[in-house]
Amino acid sequence: MTADRSLALRRVLAGIGRAVALGFVLLWSVGPIALIIMAAFTPEKEIFSVARRGNWQPTLENFVSLWAKWGDFFVGLANSLIVTLGATLLAVAVSTLAGFGYSRWKSRFLAGSAFAMIALRLLPPIVTTLPLFPIVNAFGLNDTYLVLILLYATFFVSMGTMVMRTFIDQIPRELDEAAMMDGASSLQILRRVVLPLCGQGMIAVAIFVIVYAWNEFLFAFIFTTKQAKTAPLVMSEMIGSLDGVEWGVLFAATTVHLLPVLVFVVLCQRHLIEGLTAGATKG
C-alpha cells in the first residue's frame, strides 16, 4: 500500500520534473529569439524601459526606419540571396556527382581521395584566407559574388558528398545493372535511375548550404567590402557604430534576416535530421 503510494508519488514528481526541465529548454532555445522579434515590433523608446508590460502595441516603425536609413541592408539581403542560391546550386551539383562516383565505383584512389576530402574539411577556414586573400585580389575577384559562392560551396562539398553517397548507396544496384544491360552509359544511369531517387539527399545537402551561406560572417567579412557585401556584414556594421546603435533598427534587421531561414529550418526539420545523421558527422 505505502509502496504503491510512494511509487505513484515518484511518478508524479518525475512528471513535474520533466515538465519543468522542458520549460527551461524552451525558454533557453526560443526565449532569445522571441525577445528580439518582439523588441523589433516595439517602439524604439520603449524597448529598454522597465514599465512597458501590459499594453504592448506592436508597431512597424523600426522596420520603416530600417528601410529609410539602411538601404545597404536590403542590398545586403539581395546579395546574400544571390550568393546563397549560387553556393547551393554549385554544392548540390558537385556533391551529387561525387556522391554517385563514390557510391558506385570502388578503387584505392577513390577510397584515398574520399578520405582526403574528409580530412581537408577539418582544416580551419580562417587559415585558407591568408593565401587566398592576395590571390583573390590578384584575379580581381575581391568583393564579387563568385569568390563567396566558391568558398561556401567548397566548405560544404565534402560533407555534401558523404551525405549524397549515403543516400545513393540506398538505391538498389539492380536498377543500375538492369539499365546497363539495356546499354545505358553511366551518365544515363545517373540521369534516369539515380537522380529521380536521390531528391531527399539533395534537399538535405541544400538545407545545410543554405543555412550556412545565408548566415556566414568570416569569409564575407574578409572578402567583401562594398558591392557583394552580405546582410550579416551590414548587421555587424550596425552593431559596430558603438556610440549610436539604433537598437530598434538593429532588431528589425535581425528579424528580417532571421525569419525566412527560421521558417525554412522548421519546415525542413525532418530532412535536416536525416541529413545530419546520414553524413554530417562522417564528412
Partner: peptide
C-alpha cells in the same frame, strides 16, 4: 515535432544575430 522545432530554432540564427540577442539580454 513542434518541440523539436523549438530546440532546433537556434540552428537558423546567424552568429551576428546571436550576438545581437545575447548582447541585448
Amino acid at each position: 515535432k513542434l518541440l523539436i522545432a523549438c530546440v532546433l530554432a537556434p540552428y537558423a540564427v546567424s552568429e551576428v544575430g546571436a550576438v545581437v540577442m545575447w548582447r541585448t539580454m
